[in-house]
Design a protein around this nucleic acid. Sequence first.
RNA 1: GUGGAUGUAGCUCAGUUGGCAGAGCACUGGGUUGUGGCCCCAGAUGCCGAGGGUUCGAGCCCCUUCAUCCACCCCA
Length: 427
Amino acid sequence: MEIASIKGFRDILPEETRVWQWIETTARRVFEDFGFQEIKTPILEKTELFSRSIGEETDIVSKEMYTFDDVKGRSLTLRPEATASVVRAYIQNRPYQTYPVQKLYSIGPMFRHERPQRGRFRQFHQINAELFGDPGPKSDADMISMAVYLFRSIGLDDVALNLNSLGCSDCRPRFKEALTDYLADKVTRLCEDCQRRATSNPLRVFDCKVDSCKEVVSKAPSIDAFLCQACRDHFESVQDALSDLEIPFVLNSRLVRGLDYYNRTTFEIQTERLGAQNAVAGGGRYDGLVRLLGGPDHPAIGFAVGVERVVALIGDDHPLQDRRPDLFIAALGKAAERAAFKWAVDLRRNGLWVEVDYASTGLKSQMKKADRIGARHVLIVGEDELKTSRAALRNMLTKEQADVELKDAVNVLKEMLKDERERDGRD
RNA sequence: GUGGAUGUAGCUCAGUUGGCAGAGCACUGGGUUGUGGCCCCAGAUGCCGAGGGUUCGAGCCCCUUCAUCCACCCCA
């Protein structure tokens, strides 16, 4: 029996890694232009970090985490999301002592034990940004615009920005109470899950897609009516700033995030092209989390982008031009093969992409190979060429063959190929 | 966790009532000494997802199991 990868964990093969590289490179460029710096945190953390920050009652913590005991019996968890770890690192390393506003991004795998389906895997990757030390609303708008700009830079225009405010610890409890009261006499009309949620986490009923629940919810009190003046002002300022930036958004009072730590501004970038998995990025403000995890009372806001989903949306529609080898050296006979191998390595040290065949095969098969990998040129070297010290350099596109002096082969080829690169504007 | 669909060559998929496991693409070699793409010829490639059962005989029928995909759910 072959050993296969485990369910929901997949190989990302070369054809696909090219797109990944393009997305990551673009994200790094965009984020660094916005003043963000990369942080790398461990994939494994103490379980408590996630249960405390994400919330015991959430689906993620209650049933989706990869949790196990290590040899000393400590409970560890593969991170299901990035924010908790970054907050932990923020508290632990105290970077705010030198710079009170911290802008950090990270890229890496996350793990959730869900049933895999379109756009959803057990190991998946997020590009993540967090901003600490500013209460907003400018930083809210900055974060959101950065997310939106990233999608534009990647070339994805058919995504929609959804926006909501969840209020703060002053006003959300009043809303929660009103909602609980409203739901109390309607539990019988709710689905099984929502009957449980109605008391444990009533906000999540808004997320339900069951028709009867949708109907109950459609007449439920709306969060915006309960926002306190401060939250109302904050939310309006965020919207004003986005309008100033000409970033279109949709107000969505049903947008409730699945992690408990969010407050005030939440947002999600959605697509209609991925079936049920419509969120390609999501985030929001989490002003109480740093303090909750034992740090100073610093406000923060962040978001995460689902890389697999972005890759799926991009498909083949990316501007990556296939790189081609500059040169293939076709060698015939032992002596030529030895020379070719040495020239190839020397040219690579000079920054050129050069291929040689490992096996000793005929010229025809070497030409085929050169053609298949898309080599721009082939240098043909055999016994005769070594004797006369001149060889043919074939341009595979134009089919022209030039005579090349072999005495100083590496330098001659280097100059010729580099000149051509510059003419073509390649690099 | 619950439902549905699908598992045959590297890929996409045929496979008749149960009777020798196939095609296209891809791959390797050849088509007059050492010149690629097109064309032609030849070749290699499979525990037919796995285990059991029925049968003279199973890719095909029955049972079990695993995997993948899709949906619910959840979220990025």
